[in-house]
Design a binder for these strands. Sequence first.
DNA 1: TTAAACTTTCAAAATATTTTGAAAGTTTAA
DNA 2: TTAAACTTTCAAAATATTTTGAAAGTTTAA
Lengths: 167, 167
Amino acid sequence: MNYDEAKNKFISTWGALGTLWGINKAMAQIHALLMISPEPLSMEDIMEELQISRGNTSMNLRQLMDWGIVFKENKMGERKEFFTSEKNVQELARQIAKERSRRELQPTIKVLNDVSNIEEDGTAKTKELIQQTKALHEMANNLDIMMNKVIGQENNWITKALVKLIK
Amino acid sequence: MNYDEAKNKFISTWGALGTLWGINKAMAQIHALLMISPEPLSMEDIMEELQISRGNTSMNLRQLMDWGIVFKENKMGERKEFFTSEKNVQELARQIAKERSRRELQPTIKVLNDVSNIEEDGTAKTKELIQQTKALHEMANNLDIMMNKVIGQENNWITKALVKLIK
DNA sequence: TTAAACTTTCAAAATATTTTGAAAGTTTAA
DNA sequence: TTAAACTTTCAAAATATTTTGAAAGTTTAA
């Protein structure tokens, strides 16, 4: 496998995976491209490499910046904007964990909490609803605590400490 | 909030969340419905409750069974099939972790491994590609180890042990 | 066997998401 | 100011996904 094959394979795999953590193909591919680019890239560069339109590039770059994993960079003497990704994989993981907790887990936890606190009326169906949503609430909460602990830790923490503890 | 409001809220929230771990709305809603139903439900029951077609119900139930979180159940003297979900939340989490590892993480790890083993040719771009995919490979691998440890553990393990260790 | 009671399949329709690209907007240098 | 060099917005088009429901398939009781 040569450089170009490897590069394309990485970009398309990352793109496919991205759809599974809730971001679209173009967004994941832009991220993948920036991830392995030694130099910041301009919008033109990205459009060219991935064969996508200007509008698409602009919108997805903005979203990646919202996620906090891509940054705008200015080059001396250049008018246009350049972009880089967070290159540190640990930091990337922390950022993703943080955003997913905020966007998905927290709202779900709130609903589970609300639902599990309805009034018991003695019927089997109400009992079951309360019991199951309580259990899910506890589990989601634990997951959230875990993710937030990870966020609060030093960078190498996940790799070094947790894996060892778990073995 | 009364029973019906709570039930609907739970079903639609679970449905929305589902799309984020890679299953579609109908599939997640069927799962939610079974999760809080004290009795096994027939295909008719599900169609009726969620207002979805027979075909849709059939296909999504099959997929949930593939995931190993919904089971067919036969009622004495009844010809039609009934369905229940895995009611134990810990077991549900284990099953989801196991399937996600198998379906998403493992294939990605393989690609990362292949890509990070291309031949070094001294250029900056190749060096960056190798370095970044190696780091991602290590991280994905650790995540996979974690998830598989969870799978191997006794049921209450996640809640009881891990959360305490992490505090 | 048969036929009733069910489930599954799959092409077509409906819906949702993504992408495009031109127009509008913004910034900067002169 | 102005106008060139850029970025963003957004309606329309393209594409992808989901849903429907009728037809085909399967199972079971008699």
